[in-house]
Amino acid sequence: MSLVENGAPGADALLDEVYGARPPAPRVGITGPPGAGKSTLVAEMALLLRRQGRRLGVIAVDPTSPYTGGAILGDRVRMSELSTDPGVFIRSMATRGSLGGLAARTEELCELLSAWGSDLTLIETVGVGQSELDVAQAADTTVVVLTPESGDAIQSLKAGLMEIADIFVVNKADHAGADQLAAGIRSALGLRAPAAWRPPIVKTIATERQGIEELNEAIEKHRAHLGDPGVSEGLRREKIRARLKNAVRERLLEGAWERKGLGALLDRAADQVLHGTISPYRAARDLIERMTDHGERSPN
C-alpha cells in the first residue's frame, strides 16, 4: 500500500494488475467540519455493516501539516472495536500537500481495498475549504455530517456542501438546535433545482448508536438510485473523467521535483526571483518546460 501511496516504481503496474480483478467496491465519502463526530459515525456504521457480514475498507484522511510535512493520523482511536476484526481494513492517510482535503492517492488505495475484498469502502475526511469537492469526486455516495454545534454549518451550506451531498446527517441530534439545523438544510435544499435524487436528512446520535441503521439504509437507497442505468451512465462518466484528470495531475507532478534535479533548479529560480533578476511567472514557465522536457540533463 505504501508503494502505491508513495507512487513508487512498480506501483502503477500493481494497480493495473488489480484493477478489475474484483468488482470495484462502492465508495462512500463521509465529510463534515471538525468535531462533527465523523470517526464515531464511521465506526458505528462499520460495526453495523460487519454484523450484516459485509467486508469493509475504511480510509481515514487527516491533513498534513503545511509547515513540517508531518501528520498525526488519529482516527483509529475511535475505531478500537474494529481493530482486530479481520473483515475490516483500516488505513490512515495524510493529505500530503494535495490541494483538496483528500490525500492524492486515495483513489488508488480504494482500488487496492477492492482487490483485498472490500464490499464497501468508507472514506472519512475533514471537510475544510476545497476538500468536499475532492471527496465527492472520489466517492459514489457523499455523506455530509453536521452538528448543531458546527456554528458555521449553515454558512457552509451556502459554500458548496449543498451541491455535493447525497445524504445529510445531523449528528448529535439530541443537542439543542438539531431541529433548526435540519430545517435549515431542508430549506436550502428547497432552493435547488428539482432533481431525480433528493438528499435525505438523517438524524443520528453516533455515540449512542442511534440513527445508524437509517443512515446505512439511505446509503443503500442512493446506491440503488445510482444503479438505475438511466441516471448513472452520465454521472459515472463525469466522475471517471474527473478521476482521470486527477490521476494525470498526480503522475505529472509526483516526484518531478526530485526526478530531474528540478529541486536544485527551483532553488536557483527562487534566488533569481529574490534578487529581482526574473519574474516569478517567467521562472515558473522555465520550470514547467524542464518538467515536461524528456531529456535527462543535469541541472548544471
Binding site: T68, G69, G70, A71, L73, G74, R76, V77, S92
Partner: peptide
C-alpha cells in the same frame, strides 16, 4: 514526530498486542 515530518498513526490508549 509530526513536526519532524513523520506521519504518525496514533492508536490511543489501552491497546492489546493484537490490536
Amino acid at each position: 514526530m509530526r513536526d519532524a515530518g513523520f506521519e504518525v498513526i496514533y492508536t490511543g490508549l489501552h491497546q492489546t498486542p493484537e490490536m
